[in-house]
Design a protein around this nucleic acid. Structure first.
Lengths: 104, 104
DNA sequence: GCTAAAGTTCGATGTACGTCAAACGATGAG
DNA sequence: CTCATCGTTTGACGTACATCGAACTTTAGC
């Protein structure tokens, strides 16, 4: 049974938190990969593609930071985590930001 | 005799450095004020407008970080510092970024 | 039920960073 | 030449954060 992990509402998005999350190279690499597919993806696949040399705890930490910033939505399905970028929400609150940061 | 303080070339702009600089609320407040006038401005005026409750060393530190990130150009004129946003350079390297972050 | 697999949480560690007081230039005014 | 002014640099301090190993949680497969 899929359950969505807690995430902030669009109203409570904080630019400082968002920029801090995106400032970290590893997290930005994850976001860049995620940004390519607007469909939900297995987070492990993204980790594979991003090819960072980081441990599992660190990856988990980064995903949490991204989620708590409102940048991604994470759904737990079985043992896996399905992630996707909250494009519309981010666009509603900070128009053009994701595009500017993650290229396009 | 006005002398420009050292600053990075457009080629060497680093997105991590830029985002880290913009992530800090105080620095972003300075940038937001600076962004309103495309003309060079006395940095003390900006500090006044931004109305942060920070000491002079801290303000000086923040201006340095912004300058070394390539976000602003600082020119020393006498005892004063004249600052302006490097709009075109930033736009050339990270199109839409400043607008997205600093509103418009 | 076991056991392996996928992530998370906890604890510890080292580093980066925002902040200020004090001391230090550098410059304009008298 | 002083002296006050504007800003920077230095040193110190506390906090935040990226990172990992180890232990834990949850789930799929048998």
């Amino acid at each position: 049974m899929p359950r969505a992990l807690p995430e902030p509402s669009v109203d409570s998005f904080d630019l400082t938190v968002v920029l801090s999350a995106l400032a970290e190279p590893g997290r930005r690499a994850l976001m860049t990969e995620l940004y390519r597919s607007s469909e939900p993806v297995d987070c492990a696949v993204i980790v594979e593609k991003a090819n960072l040399g980081l441990s599992n705890p660190t990856i988990s930490h980064h995903y949490r930071v991204l989620r708590e910033a409102g940048l991604i939505r994470t759904v737990a399905e079985g043992r896996k985590r399905i992630v996707k970028v909250r494009r519309d929400d981010m666009e509603a609150r900070f128009p053009g930001l994701l595009n500017a940061v993650l290229r396009a």
